[in-house]
Amino acid sequence: MTKVLASPRLTLIGLIWVGIAVIAHYQLPGLPSWQLALPFAALASNLAAALLVKPALRASAGLFVFHVSLLGVMLLAGWGRLKHFDGRVEVVEGQAFSDARAEITRYGAWHRNRLNEIEFIQGPYTIDYRPGLKRSHTRSEVYSDDGRAVVGDIDPLVLSGYRFYTTHNKGFALVVTWMPAAGQTETGAIHLPSFPMNDWRQESTWKPSGGPNLKWVLDPGIKLDFQQAWKLDSRQLKPVLKIQGKDQAIELKPGQSASVPGGSIRFEAVRGWMGYRIFYDPTLPWLLACAIVSVLALAWHLLGRLTLPKLSVKLAHERAA
C-alpha cells in the first residue's frame, strides 16, 4: 500500500492536481478551502510514503533533508491554516484596544480566540505623505505592559502571538460627551470616514440616546495641499465641529458645549483612529525555518553531486572537422 502511495506517477498527478486547484482558487475565489487543501494533503501523503520506501530519496543527506523539510512546510502550513486568525480593528487614540470591536475576517477551525487577553492603548500617530498624496512612513505609538512602542509599515505590534499591522485605513474620531436632560452622561467617539481618502466627506450621523438624529461634520481647520509633501498628525488640526439637526446648525470648538432637544453636547476633542490588520499564526517562525532549511538542503545536495556543465566540450563543427 505504501509503495503504491509513493508512486512517482502519483507525484506527477498530485502536482498537476495542485496546479489545477490553484488556478481554480485564483479564478473562483469563493471555492471552499478544502478544494485547495485536498490536493496538497494528497501530495504530502505521496511525499511521506516516498520518504519511507524510496531509498533514492535517502541516498543523499541534502536530498533527504530537502524532502523532509518540504513535507514539514506543507504540514506546518496546513496546521497554521487550522490555527490562524485574520481580522481588523480600529482603535481611537487615547482608548484601549477592545476585542469586542475587532472584526473577524477569517479564522481556522482550531483557533482558540485569546484576543480578550490583549491590552494596549493607542497613542498618537503620524503618517508622511509625498507630493501627489503618496503614502510614506507610518508611526503609530502604542502603550502596553511592555511599555511604549512605535509600530508601523513593516514593524507590527506583537502581543500574545497576535500581530497588529498598521494599514492605509485610518482617520479621525470626534470625542463628544452627551449630557441628557434625564439620564446618565456618556462620552464616546464618533468615527469619521478614512482620511485623506475621504477628505471631502468627514461626516457621520449619530443619534444620542433620548436625543435627536444629528449629522456630525468635521472641519479640520487646516488647508492641505496634496501636491506638496505633508504629515498627517491629528494634533496639528484646528478642528471645528458642525452639528446639523432638523432645525438647528451648531458650530463647536474643542471644550465648547451646546444644547439640543433632549440634552446638551460637549465637543471634547478630535482624535486619530488607526486601522490595524490582526494576524495570528503560531507556525510562522517554524515555517520560515523549515522553508530556509529546504532551500539550503537542496543547494547543498546540488553542490556536492551536481556540478554545472564542463568548461570544454567539442562543438558540432569541431567534431565534423
Binding site: 532551500v295 537542496l298 543547494a299 546540488l302 551536481l306 556540478t307 554545472l308 556543465p309 566540450v313 567539442k314 562543438l315 558540432a316 563543427h317 567534431r319 565534423a320
Partner: peptide, 22 residues
C-alpha cells in the same frame, strides 16, 4: 553546429533548471 551534441545539451538543460529551482 556551434553547439555541443544533444546529450550534452540535454544534461546541461536539466542542471540549469535544477539550479533555477533552488
Amino acid at each position: 553546429a556551434d553547439l555541443p551534441e544533444d546529450t550534452f545539451l540535454e544534461s546541461a538543460m536539466w542542471r540549469f533548471l535544477i539550479w533555477a529551482l533552488v
